[in-house]
């Protein structure tokens, strides 16, 4: 029996009202529901306010360098694919610093679940814009407003090969827990973009803003329909944020396509008869 207490570490240091509180709670609820205790999964915590969850959620974990959590996760999974792998990171890490890893992990359909805390700012470095900031967003690094348009992660993930793409709102804990569980149960690359108000540094994309602009996907949406999914995934460009599973298809994940991985890499015997490799050189 796994309890929330087993999974709960230190008292978090997040600002009061920060979306991370409910995301942290949703992760623990989902793990309890999946009966995953701290010894039965690996969590990759990136750098940022979200990544600081490393000391608040108990698990075998890597607290990685900024932006590299997905790359670490790929290696963790390939070396021991029996353990579920969860990435906890911010929008700066996944869509900015680690954007390349994100694109290519989608392509590889690596069996990992990536939770992206999307608050449009860099909270830990005191509020500069993230790649998700709306055009014109003024911040310390963009005093006259950001010139670039935002990264739109949902269509990006779908078109690059992710097989589970969802969006959640940090303010709706039960739905978020449900989506995390669905993502972790999915075999293949799953990502959940979590709309998260930053109460300290983002006065635009507030709790109220997200409440006003989001809508729940209902049964009329077919996540297996690529065209429909893309259409829905593009809605944020009109400031409409779909909540729920946007896209989900079954495709073999990366490790399932490596013949040698019929058992976890770390459990395989040391192969000793390698001298046969030498004949090609003779």
């Amino acid at each position: 029996m796994v309890t929330a207490q087993d999974l709960t570490g230190y008292q978090p240091t997040w600002c009061s009202g920060c979306g991370n509180w409910s995301i942290g709670r949703a992760i623990i609820n989902s793990l309890v529901e999946q009966k995953l205790d701290p010894s039965s999964l690996v969590v990759l915590f990136d750098i940022g306010c979200s990544g600081n969850m490393n000391d608040f959620v108990n698990a075998y974990a890597m607290h990685t360098l900024h932006g590299r959590s997905i790359a670490n996760a790929v290696g963790v999974k390939l070396a021991n694919h029996q353990l579920p792998v969860l990435v906890v990171a911010g929008d700066g890490a996944i869509y900015g610093e680690g954007g390349n890893h994100f694109l290519h992990a989608c392509r590889g359909n690596h069996d990992i679940t990536v939770l992206v805390h999307d608050n449009s700012v860099y909270g830990l470095t005191t509020g500069q814009v993230s790649p998700r900031a709306q055009k014109g967003h003024k911040s310390k690094s963009t005093p006259t407003g950001i010139i670039e348009t935002p990264v739109y992660p949902l269509p990006l993930a779908i078109t690059q090969g992710a097989t589970f793409v969802a969006q959640a709102f940090a303010g709706n804990l039960p739905e978020l827990s449900k989506l995390i569980t669905a993502g972790m149960k999915h075999t293949g690359f799953s990502m959940i973009n979590i709309l998260q108000p930053c109460v300290t540094f983002n006065k635009i994309n507030t709790f109220q803003y997200y409440l006003k602009h989001q809508y729940q996907l209902d049964s009329s949406h077919d996540p297996a329909d690529y065209q429909q999914a893309l259409e829905v995934a593009n809605k944020p460009k009109e400031e409409k944020f779909p909540i729920g599973i946007i896209y989900q298809v079954d495709k073999p994940s990366y490790h399932e396509q490596i013949p040698a991985l019929n058992q976890p890499l770390i459990n395989q015997p040391h192969r000793e008869n390698l001298v046969n490799l030498l004949t090609q050189f003779q």
Binding site: M62, A71, N72, V74, G75, A79, L265
Partner: peptide, 11 residues
């Protein structure tokens, strides 16, 4: 970083 992930896992 992939290699470090694999190393952490024990490979």
């Amino acid at each position: 970083n992939e290699a470090l992930g694999a190393s952490f896992s024990g490979a």
